[in-house]
C-alpha cells in the first residue's frame, strides 16, 4: 500500500475510533453507574492488566481461535473442492450436510465437554466443528460454480486432475473461502467466549473466563479490560485476513 493511501486509511480509522470512544464516554456519563466505566478508566485498566493476568489469558484465547480456524480450514477446503467437482461424492455428502448444517452445534457443548474434558480440546473442537461446516459449504458451492470452459481449456493443455485443482479450482474458490473465513472468525470468537465462560480447567482460562471472573467480583473496569482485549483480538485477526486476501488474491483488486 502506498504511504499516502496508508495515511488516509489510518485517518479514516482514527475518526471511527474517536466516534466510538465519544459515544462510550457519553453513555457512561449519562448512566453514571459503576457497571459502565468510561473509556479512560477501562483502557487504563487494560494497560495495567495486560502485563499481569490479562496477557496470558489473551494469548490462550488467540491460540484457541487460530488453531481451530487453521485446522478447520484445511480439511474443509480440500473436501469442499472435491465435493463441488465430483458429483457422485456430493450426492452422498449433500444430504448429510443439509441435515446437519442448520443444527446449532453449540448445543453439543455439554456433550463435548463431557467427552473431551474442560481443557483446550473441547473448546477448540467446538469452534472447529462450526467453522468446518461453514467453510466446507462455501468451498463446495464455489467449486461447483467454476467455469467449465476454463476447466476444458486447461484440460486441453494436458492437465491431470490434481493440476486442475491446483491451477483452476483452488484459485477460483480462494476469494470466496477467504470471505467465509472472515465470517467464520466472528462466529469463532463468539463460540470461544461462550465455551470459555462455561467450563475451565485451572491455568489460564482465556478471555471469556477472565471476563466472567471480573464480573463475579464486580470489578467492572477489569471486565471492560477483558472486553477491550477480545475486541482487539478480533480486529487484529480481521485485519490480518484482509491483508492476506490482498496478498494472495491480487487479481481481485485490480
Amino acid at each position: 500500500m502506498p504511504l499516502s493511501k496508508f495515511k488516509k486509511t489510518l485517518s479514516d480509522y482514527s475518526i471511527a475510533v474517536l466516534i466510538l470512544l465519544v459515544l462510550w464516554e457519553a453513555a457512561s456519563m449519562w448512566l453514571n453507574k459503576s457497571y459502565l466505566p468510561g473509556p479512560y478508566l477501562s483502557f487504563l485498566t487494560f494497560g495495567q492488566e495486560l502485563g499481569r493476568k490479562l496477557g496470558p489469558h489473551l494469548l490462550v484465547s488467540t491460540g484457541r481461535v487460530v488453531i481451530s480456524l487453521v485446522t478447520a480450514l484445511i480439511p474443509a477446503v480440500l473436501l469442499g473442492m472435491v465435493l463441488g467437482r465430483v458429483e457422485k461424492y456430493d450426492r452422498i455428502a449433500a444430504p448429510l450436510i443439509y441435515l446437519t448444517y442448520p443444527v446449532p452445534k453449540i448445543i453439543f457443548l455439554p456433550l463435548v465437554v463431557t467427552l473431551m474434558g474442560l481443557g483446550n480440546l473441547s473448546k477448540i473442537f467446538l469452534i472447529w466443528i462450526i467453522v468446518f461446516f461453514q467453510i466446507l459449504v462455501t468451498a463446495r458451492d464455489a467449486a461447483r460454480q467454476v467455469n467449465k470452459s476454463m476447466v476444458d481449456s486447461v484440460l486441453s493443455l494436458g492437465a491431470g486432475e490434481m493440476q486442475i485443482y491446483r491451477h483452476v479450482i483452488f484459485p477460483s474458490c480462494l476469494p470466496k473461502i477467504l470471505t467465509a473465513l472472515r465470517i467464520s472468525l466472528g462466529t469463532a470468537i463468539a463460540v470461544l467466549f461462550f465455551s470459555e465462560t462455561v467450563a475451565n480447567l485451572g491455568g489460564y482460562g482465556g478471555i471469556g473466563y477472565y471476563v466472567m471472573e471480573a464480573w463475579a467480583r464486580l470489578e467492572w473496569n477489569v471486565m471492560f479490560a477483558g472486553i477491550i482485549a477480545m475486541g482487539i483480538m478480533g480486529f487484529v485477526l480481521y485485519l490480518f485476513l484482509d491483508w492476506l486476501e490482498k496478498k494472495i488474491c491480487p487479481w481481485e483488486f485490480l
Binding site: 476454463m150 481449456s153 486441453s156 491451477h167 477460483s172
Partner: peptide, 18 residues
C-alpha cells in the same frame, strides 16, 4: 484425451484470471 500436439483455443475463459 490430452494429445500433446493438439492446441485448443476458445472464445473466452481460455485464460485464468489469477
Amino acid at each position: 484425451p490430452k494429445r500433446r500436439e493438439t492446441a485448443l483455443i476458445l472464445q473466452d475463459y481460455g485464460l485464468l484470471p489469477w
